[in-house]
Each structure stands twice: as C-alpha cells, then as structure tokens.
Amino acid sequence: MWHYFFKRIAGSIPTLFIIITIAFFMIRLAPGGPFDSERPIPAEIAANLDRVYHLNDPLPVQYGHYLLNVLKGDFGPSFKYQDYSVTELIQQGFPVSLQLGVLAIVLSLLIGMILGGLAALKQNSFIDHLVMTLAMTGIAIPNFVIAPILALIFGVLLGWLPAGGWGSWQHMILPIIALSLPQVATVARMTRASLIETLHTPYLRTARSKGLPMRHLLFRHALKPTLLPILSWLGPATAAIITGSVVVEQIFGLPGIGRYFVNGALNRDYTLVMGVIIFYGVLIIVMNLVVDLLYAYFDPRIRYDE
C-alpha cells in the first residue's frame, strides 16, 4: 500500500507539469487578450501594456518565466483584478467554496444514500418509484432555475432568508440546497443501482438465506461494496463542488472561486485562469488518489501491488 502511495505521489508531479504546460499554451492560443475591451485603445497604449506585462515576449520565454514563478509559489498578479495576486484571490475565495461544497456534499450523501437505500430495498414498488421521482426532480430542474426560485420564494416572498450575499449561516442555506439537489439525485440513483447489484451477489444471497437480520446484513456486508461506484464518482465530484459553481455564486452573490474558472477564461485573465487550473488539478489528483486508496479499504480484494 505504501509503495503504491509513494508511486502515485511521484507520478503526480509529471501529471501536474503536463497540465500546466498544455493549459498555458491552450490559453494563449485563444484569440483576444486581457486588455481588449469594448473601447478599443490606441496602439501606443496597447504597446505600453504589452511591455509592462511582458505580453510581447516570445511565448516560450513567457512560459519559462511562469514555470519558474510557480516553482517559487508565485502565481503572479491577476490581469483583471489588478490590485490582488492570484494567490490572494484563491485564498479569499476558497474557504467560501469549501464550506459550501463540503456541506453540500455531506448533505447529498446522507439524503441520497437513505433515499437510494430505501428504493433498493423496495425495488419496483410504489415507494421505489416515488423516491426516485423525487430524487430525479433535483436533476431535472437545472441549477439556474432552482436557484432563482429558491431566492424568490424564501428571500423575496417569505422573507425568511437573505436573497443573496455572504456573512452568516443564513446566507449559506439556499446555496447549499441549490448545490446539493442535483447531487442528491445522483447519489440516490447510484446507491439504488449499486445496492440492488450487491444484494444479488451470491455471498449476500447466502447470508440472507441463512437468516441474518437485514440491518446486520446491510451495514456489515452490503454497505462497503455498494459504495464502490459512488466512491469513483465522489472523487471528481468533490473536487468540482468545493471549487465552487459559477451559476450558484452569481445568483446568490457569493465570493467563492467558481466564477474565476468561467470569468477568468472569458476575460483572458491568463494568470488567474492558470492559478485556478493548477489548484483544481492538484485537487483532482489528490481526490482521485484518496479514492483509489479507499477502494482497497472498501473492497479488500483490490490490490495494487502486483
């Protein structure tokens, strides 16, 4: 196990390097630059900007500089939000996205697994269909529809919660609901499918026929293998959800980092986009490593050392 762990850690360095390299050149290939705006600027001024921000150096030179700075832990200043460095922006925004993301994922796992489990145990019954229909609602109604509806009902019409902004636990409730609804659906559907599968495996059939109590059966034997596919999904999903959602952030006016992925790209804010890509890349690598290690915990037959 440890051998595998270290091999993976070593393997993540070239992975990250490849991500940085491809991303860097991909971003620069896209037309338009950070200083293009509705109001075209005189050529002399554009030249000043390019010089001061080193945008007229050859691309490989810029790449070299960037790589060196990243090694030093410096992601540079944002092109768009010029008063802040990329590191500062991520430091400010990530705690917000992390809080919302973790709470949303925990909530969706809890509710989703209970719903999915219920449906699986009563397969093809009325309860099954009801629960699945309910869960499906979360995914059938997109984020950008459910979020304004929540804000309208609970913020504007009922006045129970703020319609937007950040600063207290009340501000978190609506965004968390909006974030977790689609995830609840996913978890519930996958739990149902996976649990049915597990309950049909020969060893559980045997255990069942021996008359073991259902609760014992579920938690002792069925739970772990059931979780396997959810675990695979959970790695990338967690990385995605804790880096925020641009839709939910914009609708609720939250200071998370999700918007930087989209707005940074739209603004050609080269440094900011690179910063969030590297950040997200590290998260993906770590989450997938954790998932792979957990596989072995949930299914002892899985071995990596061969």
Partner: peptide
C-alpha cells in the same frame, strides 16, 4: 453580476 439576482436583493431590501 446577475441583474435578476440584484433585483431580488433590492426587493428584499438588501
């Protein structure tokens, strides 16, 4: 950024 969202926050008095 989202005008509809801003309008809702206006209506709640935020």
């Amino acid at each position: 950024e989202d005008q509809s969202a801003a309008m809702k926050r206006f209506r709640t008095g935020e």
